[in-house]
Design a protein around this nucleic acid. Structure first.
Lengths: 182, 182
DNA sequence: ATCAGCATGTAAGGCGTTACATGATTCA
DNA sequence: TGAATCATGTAACGCCTTACATGCTGAT
């Protein structure tokens, strides 16, 4: 398996539960984990092809019911082993890129109003993302007894907690900047 | 300037205050902004060369005092314009990759203990990063009156706030997982 | 004497995005 | 009729990391 290609593990993790098409995988990523990990078709399809060649997944039920060809992928024992091995390694790369903070850090090159504008833009984004996460969390609460849902719940909670911290910071930052003489 | 190469703006932002060598730039990134943006020599030196060619920065005082050659870069008016223009665009890409959350999301493929282990590892990392940020914040408090230090202070505060939210979440997550029957 | 820090760069290669190409079906 | 969704893939290209290459100075 590609050494540093984490999309492989995302795919294996999703296939652990059920067989999926590349298209399905994209939807699962967008719907459930996109606030902490992203993936595009251009990374998913090549990864699936590579992993099939090296035996981590296999094609199943190339169904054609009226529509175009549809390829379901199934995780193999080798794939399951790789997934479990990854989970057992404590090391995890959490790589954050906040362009908003970059702009704020260099805020001195512009006036205070520009910095405030950038904070407000960030705040709006966070608010709308947070609303989505809250709906998702409510839906999960109803099915918490189902296997694995506790893990989904924990990650969503992580998102909500951090986004709420962002909003609190936005409030404080605006106050501090607002009270500062230019 | 390269369309999507944010390192260019980081460099311009740093050069706005003072002339720096590539080596200095790396140190500034590591010391002040690495918790929300990273940069390596392999990206810094080529970016400097490109930007010099296209007139965003220029070489200044190629001093050789005993040591090897040392190239100070100076931001040009064109560079300042580019920096300000970027600051004026509200849009900002905040791209987060939490491998920890990925592992937790797929936690069902392993036992509860493995998930707990991964949370604890994350917690330890956060605690040590937080300690560094707190020291940095204390140092900034002493010089808050100096120009631009308010912006540095705000970003450090952002880091501390989010890291504290992480730690709170870790506590809750451990409790929820601990109280769950396998 | 040796290691860390200062200092600049190149090379290889991987990862990922965006855009393109193609085409069927379903719903308004 | 036309847009959205389903569905798979390729191509170009860009960004970045890691490792390598080189060599001086100062401290232990």
């Amino acid at each position: 398996m590609a050494k540093d290609r984490k999309i492989d593990l995302v795919i294996l993790g999703l296939l652990f539960h059920e067989d999926l098409t590349g298209y399905d995988i994209k939807k699962r990523i967008d719907g459930g984990i996109s606030f902490f990990w992203k993936g595009s078709f251009g990374s998913i399809y090549p990864a699936l092809a590579d992993m099939e060649k090296s035996g981590y997944v296999e094609k199943r039920g190339v169904q054609t019911k009226g529509r175009r060809e549809k390829i379901l992928y199934h995780i193999t024992d080798k794939g399951i082993d790789a997934l479990k091995e990854w989970l057992n390694v404590e090391q995890a790369a959490n790589d954050l890129k906040y362009e908003t903070m970059l702009k704020l850090y260099f805020g001195g090159a512009q006036d205070k109003g520009t910095a405030l504008k950038n904070i407000r833009y960030f705040e709006d984004q966070v608010k709308s993302d947070l609303a989505v996460l809250r709906v998702y969390q409510e839906n999960l609460k109803k099915v918490m007894d189902q296997k694995d849902h506790i893990y989904y719940y924990l990650t969503v909670t992580f998102g909500i907690d951090t986004y709420e911290a962002y909003l609190k910071w936005c409030g404080r930052a605006k106050k501090i900047l607002g009270g500062m003489e230019e």
